[in-house]
């Protein structure tokens, strides 16, 4: 099977790879970049666990091929805070019990980062709408919604 060369920026670092066209961006991040914080749940665009930020927009990395991200600027969950630190969103998820098993959490955290960047002072309804594309089977979502409210408040200063 022939492969294609790709190059992109991931969390501020240049990354290069040689991939089959059918390899998803999620698989490239996990297998080639060894950035396994991006999780794969359904692998067909329903669960949101694989959400990453591509050129400023939150997208499902299982619904993009890695070759399509050639030249793009990506942020994954690993890039949201300095190593060993928590971002305000991550801190708020911990404080508000916004996670239990943690499998869905990277997708939520990345989605919330992109959401609060666009809407720093969201209403509860707007938060619910923004979270609708991420599935969590543990928490019942209430802690996650509180976490987004806390993160928005802490980021507002």
């Amino acid at each position: 099977m022939s492969t294609l060369p790709i190059a992109m920026t991931v969390n501020g670092e240049p990354r290069r790879g040689q991939v089959e066209a059918r390899k998803t961006l999620a698989d490239f991040l996990r297998e080639d970049c060894v950035l396994t914080g991006t999780h794969l749940g359904c692998e067909h665009g329903v669960c949101g666990a694989c959400t990453v930020i591509v050129d400023g927009a939150a997208v499902r990395s299982c619904l993009m091929f890695a070759v399509q991200a050639d030249g793009a600027d990506l942020t994954t969950v690993e890039g949201l805070a300095e190593p060993g630190q928590l971002s305000p969103v991550q801190e708020a998820f911990r404080e508000e019990h916004g996670l239990q098993c943690g499998f869905c959490t990277p997708g939520f955290v990345v989605s919330v980062h992109a959401f609060l960047a666009q809407n720093p002072t969201p209403s509860r309804d707007e938060i619910r709408d923004a979270l609708a594309g991420n599935l969590c089977r543990c928490t019942g979502y209430q802690g996650i919604i509180r976490a987004v409210e806390r993160a928005a408040a802490s980021m507002a200063g």
């Binding site: 665009g45 949101g48 959400t51 927009a57 939150a58 997208v59 499902r60 619904l63 993009m64 989605s111 959401f115 709408d129 923004a130 609708a132 594309g133």
Partner: peptide, 12 residues
């Protein structure tokens, strides 16, 4: 537009 999928879907 807001009725289509979710924001991550509509971004693509």
């Amino acid at each position: 537009a807001p009725l289509i999928g979710h924001v991550q879907i509509r971004n693509r």
